[in-house]
Amino acid sequence: MQLGFLVDLHLCMGCKGCEIACKVENEVPLSTWRLRVKYVDVGSFPETRRTFTPLRCNHCENAPCEKICPVSALHYLENGIVNIDKERCIGCAGCVMACPYGAIYIDPQTQTADKCTYCAHRIASSMMPACVVACPVQANIFGDLDDPTSNISKYIQHNQGNVQVRKPEKGTNPHHYYVGGGNVTLNPLASHRVDGHQLFNKITTLPVGGHH
């Protein structure tokens, strides 16, 4: 079994329901995120468009975070999930430095690394990840990539030619796919980040949760 995610960006309307569901389900502390929806505005007035991209851990097949972890706190589950054992973690932040997708954070309460686990605890009880359940337009498709009859496999087959992953050049082989993605949505260097010009906040960076 190889669990994977696919987000259809044609469907996502940026409601952030998944983001909130994840926060609540996993008790993600303030100032940290496992899943977030990024808005990027494209074009010049009046030809403008707003894009929405949910971003979470990709559960890479060749995960740099797992490789760099000195104590195997980050490890693979049999279903392909890259999981974390917070008891084991020594807080070296090597994984935060290694993940090319900025998917890991240091939990300010436990002082250990944390990230999206595809809701491994819910999967163990045969439930869908919280974000999948919360999405009002079913933009999140979750399932077994090894099973050709699963929804996600069928979606990938159906959309062949328009399925992307983030930063394929890194060789991480993400198990997280996008349909309808592009450079602007998936490449962080393809858009400006202007200090203090966000819709609802003016903070561009926050100190890493912890004692530094």
Binding site: W33, R36, Y39, D41, V96, M97, A190, Q198, L206, V208
Partner: peptide
């Protein structure tokens, strides 16, 4: 790309600061 698309991040979480200080 930027000139062609004029892409600007308009809503996102704050990025983490320096990890290894």
């Amino acid at each position: 790309i930027l000139a062609a698309t004029n892409a600007v991040v308009t809503l996102d979480v704050a990025l983490p600061g320096i990890v290894w200080p």
